[in-house]
């Protein structure tokens, strides 16, 4: 699917599908690569999402009709373009009690042991469909059906940065201290977002992500390294074939 529509007086939205589907989302990221490789004058930025790409442009530099034509030309290149390079990011998470306020409740809800929960949460290679909600926040796909847990009825006023939680079919990491209703089962010392650093955002749309269980001693070691600026996040690049 490829359909293009106007979005306000400075936006264009291209839709690649109607469902949350990895193949659809890979097409969104293919289109990102094309926009990067064949810059179109007048485009100021773009926001990829689950099924779509929204492009923000300056009508003083390019008309809607001309932009539509150029985007259609890019679309013709999609079938020949190489699949985007996917990076694998490993996120260390401490699932021990002091970092996992809701772990016992989640275990009880599913009638599983804490070890089983950790096993189910660290096993999948999650896929980053898109970024949004908060600076550096990845929308992850791939949570085990066995871990699907409803949100807290009363959201907390403050959830600490780095907290790892589950909300319905989603799992995610809080990039900042924020209010929230996710069930917290662990915490990472790694920063997803750091305004002070040059490379501010750790994760990008289209990446894959794996959680790695660490003990609290390792947690504090990594936390120190992050503080001192000598922590190297574990990222490997791999050319990914189309998942089919």
């Amino acid at each position: 699917m490829y359909s293009i529509q106007l979005y306000g007086d400075r936006g264009v939205r291209i839709q690649f599908g109607n469902t949350i589907d990895r193949q659809v989302n890979v097409n969104v990221h293919r289109f990102t690569s094309l926009l990067e490789n064949y810059p179109i004058e007048g485009i100021t930025e773009w926001i990829p999402a689950y099924t779509s790409m929204t492009i923000y442009y300056n009508p003083g530099k390019i008309t809607y009709l001309k932009l539509e034509k150029k985007l259609n030309q890019l679309q013709k290149l999609m079938s020949e373009s190489a699949p985007p390079v996917s990076r694998k990011v490993t996120i260390p998470v401490c699932y021990e009690k002091e970092f996992a306020i809701d772990m016992d409740d989640v275990a009880e809800y599913h009638n599983l042991s804490v070890q089983e929960i950790i096993g189910l949460h660290t096993e999948p290679l999650y896929y980053v469909y898109m970024m949004g909600f908060m600076p550096g926040f990845p929308y992850l796909g791939g949570l085990s059906e066995k871990l699907v847990t409803p949100r807290l009825e009363n959201p907390r006023k403050r959830v600490e940065r780095g907290s790892v939680g589950i909300a319905d079919q989603q799992t995610g990491i809080y990039p900042l201290d924020s209010p929230g209703g996710w069930r917290i089962i662990g915490k990472t010392p790694v920063h997803l977002y750091d305004a002070q650093k040059d490379n501010k955002i750790l994760i990008r749309s289209g990446d894959t992500l794996q959680f790695e269980a660490i003990d609290s001693e390792t947690y504090y070691k990594i936390e120190d390294a992050v503080q001192n600026g000598d922590y190297q996040p574990k990222i490997s690049e791999e050319k990914e074939g189309d998942p089919s």
């Binding site: 926001i47 999402a49 689950y50 099924t51």
Partner: peptide, 28 residues
Amino acid sequence: ISDAVLPGTIQVPANGQPIVLLSDRQTT
């Protein structure tokens, strides 16, 4: 399905009361 929002985008949540998104809006 979560999607990009722009300045001025008018969302209508389940309660039917519109919200016009402005400068500090989330991106999606």
